[in-house]
Design a protein around this nucleic acid. Structure first.
Length: 513
DNA sequence: TTCCGACAGTGGGGTCGCAAT
DNA sequence: ATTGCGACCCCACTATCGGAA
């Protein structure tokens, strides 16, 4: 199959909005593909490379290459070239990668170049990724979509399921069962603005669990063999010997547990997310990193115990299995509420959790099964939200559906001398109407136009929600906002009334530089 | 030889609009 | 009405390469 055909379908998929039509177009393409093309065509149309990221980013792709006039590249040839690219390493590798990318782009037509750039940067922007590819695959093979989705979650890989399905038909799906040693996409949580809202939305008995601000980890143990996986199923076993040891110390031989890796200081208080994440990210000298920032694992769910698949059991039963296996300190603290009438107890638990230095709570329906790979409606996280009145210093032009709109705002707080110190940026929380309004307003205030956007007179006050402060080497105050988003503009406020850096630092003494 | 800047890839994420249910 | 998905982009951190000191 020619790459040109994929590029064409991707363009068509992007141009229509009906999801059913997107699925139909993908299904048609999957049916056309020869067996040998499938391991490439499926991931490409889901917007990812079979090789994963291969060390090619915007910088290398920014060099313009004269496109070919006729499409000649086949998807398999592209795959071979990218495999070769992924293998390049060591001295001179950057130049070699650039050369190989240039060669590939030179063999591609303009349309194919656009598709390849999207694929290599992970930004295909066709409004259809994994979920659409799963639906398309189901439609192409006649397998029930729900079964295909489940197999993908259990295999942790769309590609594997696609190959089996196209080779052996719908019966192949039965092969994908929960297996110790093979990672499963983890269940994720939605947000709620308060404990009362969360408990109310569940409307039934719920567990309220502490939410630790660390790195999600899935722990597999089969006898003496332990493997650790991240949220995206990367194998991080070698980086976390403490977690492996903890798993081996448990009184079970074959299990899969879900938990959080986090570092506690000598006093038992959680270290900042930055410290934990830095430790988990350290690969080259694990022993030194482990001495400086030792980590613990705290479990909150059991997917498999004694080789028994627990995914379809209610949380109550999974937790009973977890409690049987994992002693108290290595299990998240939790409390139970029987329903909305007991919201008070949940609020009290949240307050205690925050006092211990944790991030918030997750409220979970006790009857809910483990929805692997989904953002289940039965897990609701609740974190305290802070707000600030900040001043817009500049704004950047948006992309995609925000093309032509000033989107990403540069946010400043007042300093002692009356100037403004930038604290970070945000593009979140804006409706289309707000984008339109702020584009007009900011152009009125513009003092300088740049390729990337405009700088403005610091006059417009905006109310910003954020989750906390992080240390920063990038911004002048030495801190930046975590997860900043727009709540509303405060045209009733003058910039002199905006919040100050000093007040902000006083509110978060633990993050102050 | 050592240092440092640039780039890539990882982790953490909230909110909106739209299609489908 | 509600749910699921994709798009919109942020932050810090580590690893690596390649050129400067």
């Amino acid at each position: 199959m020619l790459l040109a055909r994929l590029a064409q379908v991707s363009r068509e998929v992007a141009a229509i909005s009906a999801r059913s039509r997107k699925t139909a177009l993908l299904a048609e393409l999957f049916r056309e593909a020869e067996a040998a093309d499938v391991p490439v065509v499926i991931p490409y149309l889901a917007g990812r490379l079979p090789q994963g990221r291969i060390g090619v980013g915007w910088k290398v792709l920014a060099r313009p290459v004269e496109p070919a006039t006729e499409p000649t590249l086949t998807v398999r040839e592209v795959d071979v070239r990218l495999t070769r690219l992924a293998a390049v390493s060591g001295a001179g590798s950057q130049a070699e990668r650039t050369r190989l990318v240039g060669e590939l782009m030179g063999a591609a037509t303009a349309d194919e170049q656009r598709f390849l750039v999207g694929l290599l940067t992970g930004e295909v922007r066709q409004g259809a990724l994994d979920a659409a590819a799963v639906e398309g695959l189901a439609a192409a093979t006649g397998a029930p979509p729900a079964d295909v989705r489940r197999a993908v979650m259990l295999a942790g890989s769309l590609q594997t399921v696609a190959e089996a399905l196209l080779a052996d038909g719908p019966d192949a799906l039965e092969r994908f069962r929960l297996t110790v040693g093979r990672p499963v996409l983890p269940m994720l949580a939605h947000s709620a603005s308060s404990v009362a809202e969360a408990v109310g939305r569940l409307g039934a008995a719920a567990a309220v669990e502490e939410k630790l601000d660390g790195i999600r980890v899935q722990v597999h143990r089969n006898g003496d063999a332990v493997r650790l996986y991240t949220r995206t199923l990367d194998d991080i076993t070698d980086r976390l010997p403490e977690v492996t040891a903890a798993a081996l110390a448990l009184p079970g031989e074959r299990f899969i547990l879900d938990g959080e890796v986090i570092s506690f200081d000598e006093g038992g208080r959680p270290r900042s997310f930055q410290e934990t994440a830095g430790r988990v990210g350290s690969r080259t000298d694990v022993a030194t990193a482990a001495r400086a920032v030792p980590v613990s694992v705290v479990f909150f769910d059991a997917l498999c115990v004694d080789g028994r698949d627990l995914l379809d059991l209610p949380l109550t039963e999974r937790h009973a299995e977890l409690a049987r296996l994992v002693p108290e300190p290595a299990r998240v603290r939790r409390t139970l509420v029987r329903g909305p009438a007991e919201t008070g107890a949940a609020e009290e638990f949240l307050a205690e959790t925050l006092k211990r230095g944790h991030e918030g709570v997750v409220v979970k329906g006790l009857d809910a099964v483990y929805s692997a790979g989904r953002r289940g409606a039965s897990w609701l996280k609740v974190k305290p939200v802070h707000t600030l009145d900040l001043v817009v210093l500049a704004a950047e032009w948006g992309h995609g559906r925000r093309t032509g709109k000033l989107s990403n705002l540069h946010l400043g707080a007042r300093t002692a001398d009356g100037s403004f110190a930038m604290l970070g940026k945000t593009f979140k929380g804006m409706t289309d109407a707000l984008l339109t309004w702020q584009t007009g307003r900011l152009r009125e205030l513009a003092v300088e136009e740049h390729g990337w956007g405009v700088t403005v007179r610091p006059e417009l006050v905006v109310e910003i929600a954020y989750d906390g402060l992080q240390r920063s080497t990038r911004y002048p105050a030495g801190v930046t906002l975590r997860f900043a988003r727009v709540l509303r503009y405060r045209e009733d406020k003058r910039p002199e009334e905006a919040d100050t850096v000093d007040a902000l630092l006083a509110t978060h003494p633990e993050a102050a530089p």
